[in-house]
Computed example of a mutant assay.
Amino acid sequence: MSKEITVLDTIATYTRQRIKEQKKSIPLSVVRAEAEKIEAVKFGFENALKKPGLSFICECKKASPSKGIISKDFPYLSIAKEYEDAGADCISVLTEPRWFLGSDKYLKEISNTVNVPLLRKDFTVDEYMIYEAKAMGASCILLICSILSVEEMQYFKDISDDLGLSALVECHDEAEIEKALKINARMIGVNNRNLKDFSVDTGNSKRLRSLVPQDILFVSESGVKSPEDIKNIIDMGADAALIGEVLMRAESKKFTLDWLKGKYDKD
Score class of each variant (00 low, 15 high):
164 G>Q: 05
135 A>W: 04
186 R>K: 15
181 L>G: 12
2 S>T: 06
133 A>R: 03
236 M>H: 04
232 N>R: 15
115 N>E: 09
81 K>T: 12
244 G>N: 11
56 F>T: 00
31 V>M: 14
222 S>Y: 04
258 D>G: 09
12 A>C: 12
80 A>V: 04
32 R>Y: 00
92 S>Q: 00
179 K>D: 12
17 Q>H: 13
61 K>N: 02
240 A>F: 11
98 R>S: 14
190 V>M: 03
208 L>F: 13
185 A>H: 06
87 G>Q: 12
125 V>G: 09
141 I>T: 00
227 P>I: 07
125 V>E: 03
60 C>F: 03
65 P>E: 06
248 M>V: 10
164 G>F: 05
202 T>Y: 04
124 T>I: 15
43 F>K: 08
202 T>K: 13
12 A>V: 11
189 G>D: 06
67 K>A: 15
256 T>Y: 04
260 L>Q: 01
233 I>D: 03
130 I>T: 04
59 E>W: 10
13 T>E: 15
135 A>N: 07
229 D>W: 06
256 T>H: 04
146 S>I: 05
3 K>Q: 14
11 I>Y: 01
34 E>I: 01
255 F>M: 05
93 V>C: 03
126 D>F: 00
53 G>P: 01
90 C>H: 03
205 S>T: 14
205 S>I: 01
147 I>K: 02
25 S>D: 08
97 P>Q: 12
240 A>M: 11
35 A>S: 12
156 F>Q: 15
216 I>F: 05
61 K>I: 05
119 L>H: 02
216 I>G: 10
129 M>T: 02
212 V>Q: 03
221 E>G: 05
156 F>N: 10
223 G>L: 11
32 R>P: 00
237 G>E: 07
175 A>T: 10
162 D>S: 15
246 V>P: 14
169 V>F: 01
79 I>Q: 05
